[in-house]
Computed example of a mutant assay.
Amino acid sequence: MSHIAMRTALPLITAAAVLLAGAGASAAAPVDVPVGEPVPAEGARIVLDDGRVVGVGDSVSFTFEGDEEPAVQPKPGKGDMAAMACPEVNDRPTYTVKGSPYFIPDKAKPQSTWLLPRQTVSWTVTGSHTFTWDIGGSVEAEAGAILAKAKVSVDTKISNSWTWTGTQTVTDTNTTSKGYRAVLGQVGWKLTGVKTWIAPPCTVKKKTIVVLAPRKGDMSIGRQNS
């Protein structure tokens, strides 16, 4: 049975405060991130359907059973002895997933600038900007199962592809003591799933699957340390 757990409890905020959407928006306190990994200036806060708020450093977790066919014990060759398999070999695999807000840069129409302390950037974004999921190789079916469950259990706005269309002004002011690169993009989700199953004859197996998925929402500005 699936379950959802919030690591921290945060106060409810309005959807208008989730993403930068106007020239009057200002930046929050700096967030330490690895070099090259951007985060939104406003902390990547996402308001869930039930009003809960998830921000940088927070996570939502859930578990579910996979839909794969039960494992089949291979037949021994002629003259070979059959290995005894434990009953758990036929159990469905389980997935334990942790999701957190994640900034996705606009790769199709990249836009960025270097901001020194107290400098401000303001861009008017127009047209269509498409963001697609990043799942690595050979895990599309499993990534699809994780995304589908996250859409039901966590956030109905999550998807494997999202196209933003319209006109919007995004703004970021560097209130930190160091310079950083402001990057145009969109706030999505990082879903880290650990698949666990029993392989014949009776061996516990684990595989980690990372899904970077966009979310239906406005454009935003992220910060990059390089």
Rank of each mutant, 00 (worst) to 15 (best):
D50L: 01
L116Q: 14
T192Y: 02
V56S: 05
A23G: 12
V154R: 00
T167C: 04
T120Q: 09
N174Q: 07
T130E: 09
Q186H: 12
T94F: 11
N160Q: 12
W162N: 02
G43L: 07
W189P: 08
E69D: 13
A150T: 00
T156M: 03
G99F: 08
L48Y: 01
V170M: 01
T176M: 06
G57V: 10
W123Q: 06
P201E: 04
Y95P: 01
E140N: 06
V31I: 15
D32W: 08
T120N: 05
W133E: 10
S138A: 14
A150W: 10
V204R: 13
K190G: 02
P201V: 06
D134L: 09
P117S: 01
A71G: 04
V56G: 00
M84V: 15
E140G: 01
Q111L: 15
W197I: 02
E88R: 09
I4L: 13
Q168K: 09
A83L: 15
I221C: 07
S100V: 07
G222V: 13
A150Q: 03
R92H: 07
K109Q: 13
L147H: 05
E65G: 12
A21W: 00
A141G: 10
Q224Y: 03
K206L: 08
K207P: 00
G179N: 01
A150N: 03
T130M: 05
S122P: 05
K149H: 10
C86R: 03
I13H: 00
D50E: 05
V204K: 14
W133I: 00
S128R: 14
P200W: 05
S161E: 14
H3S: 14
V39N: 07
G99T: 02
Q111H: 10
Q119D: 14
T126V: 13
P101C: 04
A5R: 12
L147F: 11
T156Y: 10
I146D: 02
R215A: 09
A5Y: 11
V210Y: 03
W164R: 01
N225G: 08
A108S: 14
E88H: 06
A28M: 14
L12S: 11
K205H: 05
T96C: 05
R7F: 13
Q111F: 05
G166F: 12
T171P: 06
K149P: 05
Q186W: 04
M6A: 09
E42P: 12
I46Q: 05
E42N: 15
A5T: 15
D50G: 01
A16D: 15
R215F: 13
T167D: 08
F131N: 02
W189S: 02
I4W: 06
I104L: 15
G22K: 07
V183Q: 04
G185L: 09
M219V: 12
E88S: 15
V56T: 14
W197T: 03
I46D: 05
K109W: 11
K78Y: 14
D91L: 11
E140R: 08
A21H: 13
M219P: 09
A16V: 12
Y102K: 04
V121I: 11
K178M: 11
